[in-house]
């Protein structure tokens, strides 16, 4: 009986630990079709979202990404992604991998990449405002700073 109990415990630990060791994301050639890649186009050059749009395109080659929102100012670029449920075990390594890649791709910007749902929601709102051109450059910069600060908040 006692042996059985120990076997059970060991088995449980094995199951638990086997979940943690999968590899991070692999890029594919085709763009991810499910992804909403709406490019934000603004007439005003001050709030041009070109880098943000580029980032979206670049991230679309990962089919595991289910949602991507990005906003940039002249100095900063913030990207929020959502990853497929069954890849969420490796969320930390995925985040690190993508962050590194984006940093390389946009050396002129201070890049922040997060997987937090809250930031996705906030960026979505901001994107909508940009699209409708109802927000000034200054306000965008202020908002982006706030969102970055929020994303770095710890418990």
């Amino acid at each position: 009986m006692t042996i059985k109990k120990w076997l059970f415990l060991i088995g449980l630990l094995c199951i638990l630990s086997s979940c943690g060791n999968e590899s991070a994301l692999e890029p594919s050639n085709k763009a991810n079709e499910k992804l909403d890649l709406t490019h934000i186009s603004t007439k005003n050059n001050d709030t041009s979202q070109h880098p943000a749009n580029q980032a979206k395109d670049a991230l679309s080659k990962y089919k595991e990404i289910t949602e991507v929102k990005a906003v940039n100012t002249t100095k900063q670029l913030i990207i929020a992604v959502q990853v497929e449920q069954n890849k969420r075990f490796n969320l930390t390594s995925i985040r690190k991998q993508l962050q590194k890649e984006m940093k390389k791709k946009f050396p002129d910007h201070k890049v922040e990449l997060t997987t937090d749902k809250k930031i996705v929601i906030e960026l979505k709102k901001l994107e909508e405002k940009l699209q409708s051109e109802s927000i000034s450059k200054k306000k965008v910069e202020k908002r982006v700073k706030e969102i970055i600060k929020l994303s770095k908040e710890q418990t």
Binding site: L16, C19, G20, R88, N90, L91
Partner: peptide, 10 residues
């Protein structure tokens, strides 16, 4: 051992 954070993410 770094296993609980992934579980929270998941």
């Amino acid at each position: 051992v770094g296993l609980y954070e992934p579980l929270i993410d998941f």
